[in-house]
Design a protein around this nucleic acid. Structure first.
Length: 503
RNA sequence: GAACCCGUAGCUCAGCUGGCUAGAGCAUAACACUUUUAAUGUUGGGGUCCUGGGUUCGAGUCCCAGCGGGUUCACCA
């Protein structure tokens, strides 16, 4: 490993500190009395009680003017200016603490702890006058230095997406606003937990390593268990396990599920992603629509402070009630064509006329309808909208519609032109479920790599009886993108998947 | 998988139709400076111009291939 000049200088500083008897990585903790923002908020109105303040954080800038200096310390919530004068931090005639330790051997990025009193400078900045300074941890690599001038212009921003995603720790240090996205992500999940717990539903955990993957149409990651000498798959969904729990007698269960799909990556797709799935017994999809509206309205308020959320150029309002269309209504609304009575041949012709890309050899009726909807309707549905009643071919785990032939009781919510969640009245007829699995097996034989596999144990569970149940899955990453106005899934994942770094 | 764009100092970037020893700001090193704030002033150091070929008297610049990244599309809930 070859070191840059600046890395060598910092290692030299570290050795020089050791020779002076200063441990660059001391073991003892540093007691903190305030955060930076607490001082900035409280001191101007209430200056008493700030005569012995201790804060700790990273040294982010040094401005040395002879025997006095200003520096900026960044802690977990913000930054605070500190004032350091030579004669205040040095004992008697020995000025090395200032001249050597602070001026020469402390670098931007080092963790320090300081104690002193708070005052206001001539230019009106709340500042900590340092009486004692302690090195807490030495940084051996230089941080990118981002500066903001008096007009608010940012200089030398750390913006290269690859570097930011690969070194998220650096990204968060120099772009502190990044942390707020992840704080909101956690608030969002907490908000859902509160809502669902208040309704009495149970948060559960189900297997990630599964001998038979199921619950979605996707290609899985495959792995091997040595002791059992058997193939296992990383889950693509947890749906079938949660339904087993409904069979077992729980009324409502949910899980924040890390799922894994071995497919392409994009602005909306990471190989591992998070969904919440919820199953409630004795309910149907109509009931679930009302729950979704209520829950997501609450989430928007909890995370953003209101029901209206700015996403790109759109202001999206999660206030109840949301618009509801059947899929056929939506297609008629956007294309002027009523396809509800068409057979496969007529559908094919209609799709052609709409210039929707169709592959007649592999696409059945349901798939064509889905394509038309995906191209002609979905991108234009910006405000939260429920789309209901999907073709049965696309939904092997959903119950057939109580009135409408060829459809299932299913809905999705489209927000900002993208599908955000998926729900249905769960199929609990074990005979019908077996037929649906068999139809999937046929698709698999014809080369559909995303066709579902038959899960004999799940069918056994259904044969013991599952009450009527409403199920729901929400993409947490995509919901977080909307609630934080993020353009890419990578911006809402701490560590998005990246190609391995070359060494 | 496809198209387009990008890769120059630790960071952000400039470098024209190919032409002296490859530049700036910040960072860094040295000196000065006890209320500054993108602190300032003076003086230094720092480069495999992504990699490998090719064209040329001469390549950071043009061509080809590769590697890495980005954007859009396709696939995909």
């Amino acid at each position: 490993m070859s070191l840059s000049e600046q890395e060598i200088i910092r290692r030299d500083s570290m050795h020089a500190l050791r020779l002076m008897g200063i441990d660059p990585y001391p073991a003892e903790g540093f007691e903190v009395t305030h955060t930076s923002t607490a001082i900035l908020e409280q001191f101007p109105d209430n200056p008493e009680g700030f005569s012995a303040v201790r804060i700790a954080g990273r040294l982010m800038s040094k401005r040395i003017m002879g025997k006095a200096s200003f520096a900026v310390i960044q802690d977990s919530v913000g930054t605070l200016q500190v004032y350091i004068s030579r004669d205040d931090i040095c004992d008697g005639e020995d000025k090395s603490m200032y001249n050597d330790v602070f001026k020469k051997h402390l670098d931007i990025g080092d963790f320090i702890g300081v104690s002193g009193f708070v005052f206001t400078t001539q230019t009106g900045t709340t500042t900590l006058h340092v009486k004692e300074l302690t090195l807490l941890s030495k940084a051996l690599r230089p941080l990118p230095i981002v500066k903001t001038d008096a007009e608010g212009n940012v200089h030398d921003a750390f913006t290269d997406p690859e570097q930011r995603y690969r070194m998220r720790y650096v990204d968060m240090v120099v772009n502190p606003q990044v942390k707020s996205v992840f704080i909101k992500r956690t608030q969002l999940m907490n908000s859902m937990r509160e809502y669902l717990n208040a309704k009495g539903y149970l948060e559960v955990e189900t297997p990630i390593l599964q001998p038979i993957y199921g619950g979605a149409a996707a290609r899985p990651f495959k792995t091997h268990h040595n002791a059992l000498d058997t193939t296992l798959y990383l889950r693509i969904a947890n749906e079938l396990y949660l339904k087993r729990l409904i069979v077992g007698g729980f009324d409502g269960v949910y899980e924040f599920s890390k799922d894994f799909r071995n497919e392409g990556m994009s602005r909306f797709h990471n190989p591992e992603f998070t969904q919440i799935e919820l199953y409630v017994a004795y309910k149907d999809y109509e009931w679930m629509m009302n729950l979704v509206e209520e829950m997501l309205e609450k989430v928007a308020i909890d995370v953003t402070g209101g029901t209206k959320v700015q996403v790109g150029e759109h202001l999206i309002d999660f206030k109840r009630p949301w618009k509801r269309f059947t899929m056929f209504e939506a297609i008629e609304h956007f294309t002027g064509v009523d396809i509800s009575e068409m057979d496969e041949h007529a559908l094919y012709k209609a799709a052609k006329e709409m210039k929707v890309h169709i592959d007649a050899s592999t696409m059945g009726k349901g798939k064509i309808i889905d394509e038309i909807f995906g191209e002609k309707c979905e991108p234009y549905l910006i405000q939260p909208t429920f789309i209901t009643d999907y073709p049965v071919e696309m939904s092997p785990l959903a119950k057939k519609h109580r009135h409408k032939e060829g459809l299932v009781e299913r809905f999705e919510a489209i927000v900002n032109g993208k599908e955000l969640l998926n729900s249905f009245s769960e199929l609990n007829d074990p005979i019908d479920q077996r037929h649906r699995f068999e139809a999937q097996l046929e698709l698999g034989k014809r080369g559909d790599e995303e066709a579902m596999v038959l899960d004999e144990d799940f069918l056994r569970a259904l044969e013991f009886g599952m009450p009527p149940t409403a199920g729901l899955g929400i993409g947490i990453d995509r919901l977080t993108m909307i609630m934080t106005n993020s353009n890419s899934i990578q911006d809402v994942l701490f560590f998005p998947q990246m190609r391995p770094e070359r060494s």
